[in-house]
Simulated assay, not measured.
Amino acid sequence: MQQITGNTRVYAIIADPIHHVQTPTAINRLFAARDDDRVMVPFHVKTQDLAGVVEGLRSIQSLDGFIVTVPHKTAMLELCDSVSEAARLVGAVNAVRRGPDGLLHGDILDGAGFVSGLRQKGIEPARRSVYLAGAGGAGKAIAFALAEAGISSLTIYNRSAAKAQALIERLAGVFPDVAFTVGTDNPAGHDLLINSTSLGLAPGDSLPFDVSGLVPEQIVAEIIMQPAITPLLAAAMTKGCRIHDGLPMLLCQIELMAAAMTCTGSELPHEHI
């Protein structure tokens, strides 16, 4: 890593837990490759402390932005002074730019990163039948991005069926050509199965959905990056399924994250202004 001085611009990633995050390594590698005097550090922040921490970050003059991940993405929306259209529609924020005046602008990059990661690995989501476990911040972003990518149908399974139904109602109003359904823990009949929950991060976590009926024709994807092979992916492998781990999503978000935290609004990629 390059030398850190009093002139170094600082960025953070906020999560609970924090041990699994790989974003700082990837972002710092990008900063070093560009010879940018910038550095990202991880912050372990509990839910009850998020608002206070964010308020404090506004006053750190050397801080230009931060990444927000599980479980803070939804709560972060209300803590920003302005948000992108994508963040407003999804109802969550995962990248925040701090202006010189301490004002915070939020964006959501999970969905775009996930879809780009699929395509990078040769998995085209268009016209596929998709099963999504989770309707939280990441799940919402991925659902919007998949619908925008042209999937044929999307079944959303969430422990709170009302939360899944609320997301579907928002999606249906924007994407009338996609068939949306509230699902159960049974992913049978779908081409692409996605876990957007945090289940699999901690040892002993239950599986996000029933894997007993998986067939080799199905693709099983994760957003969790550590461990690389989660219990869900391990179970899918035993069934002969193609698996897609969480790392491509991160790698495809890195440049978008860097842009969202370091650029002015006019310099951001058009779809995230």
Rank of each mutant, 00 (worst) to 15 (best):
R242W: 03
N195K: 10
D49N: 14
I223N: 03
E85W: 03
V10C: 11
E148A: 14
Y157Q: 05
A179Q: 13
G139W: 00
R38Y: 14
D35M: 13
R38K: 13
L109W: 03
E271D: 12
V90S: 02
A166K: 07
G189T: 14
V10M: 13
I60K: 04
P227R: 13
N158L: 12
A162D: 15
D210G: 03
K46I: 10
V115C: 04
L214H: 01
I27K: 01
S152V: 04
R159L: 09
I60L: 15
A138D: 05
P227A: 13
L167Y: 00
Q48E: 15
D185P: 03
C241T: 03
H244G: 00
P71E: 04
H19T: 08
E78H: 15
G99T: 06
F180D: 00
V115W: 01
L232V: 09
G183P: 03
K73F: 05
E169C: 02
G99D: 11
I223P: 01
N28M: 12
L207W: 10
D110W: 00
N7Y: 13
A162R: 14
A179D: 12
R127I: 03
T74A: 14
D210N: 15
L79N: 08
P227G: 11
R119Q: 15
A145F: 05
L132D: 03
E148P: 01
I14Q: 03
L251D: 09
F175K: 06
S116L: 09
L232Y: 06
G134I: 05
C80L: 06
A149H: 05
Q165I: 04
G52R: 14
A202C: 08
L268G: 06
V54E: 01
P227S: 12
N7C: 11
D107F: 05
M249V: 07
C263M: 13
P176D: 12
A235S: 11
H20T: 09
G56F: 11
E222R: 10
D37Q: 15
G134Y: 09
G102M: 04
A141D: 07
A234M: 05
G106E: 01
G204V: 14
T5A: 09
T5Q: 10
H105C: 07
M225V: 15
L192R: 02
Q3C: 11
K239C: 10
V53P: 08
N7F: 09
L50V: 06
H190Q: 14
A236L: 00
L193D: 04
V39W: 04
S212M: 13
G99M: 02
G136A: 08
T230C: 14
T264H: 07
I194N: 01
R97L: 01
A260E: 02
D101L: 08
A161D: 06
A33P: 01
L104S: 02
N186K: 05
I273P: 01
N94G: 09
S82F: 01
S153Y: 05
Q2H: 13
T69N: 13
G240W: 11
A145R: 01
R170N: 07
L199W: 08
K239M: 08
H44W: 13
L171T: 06
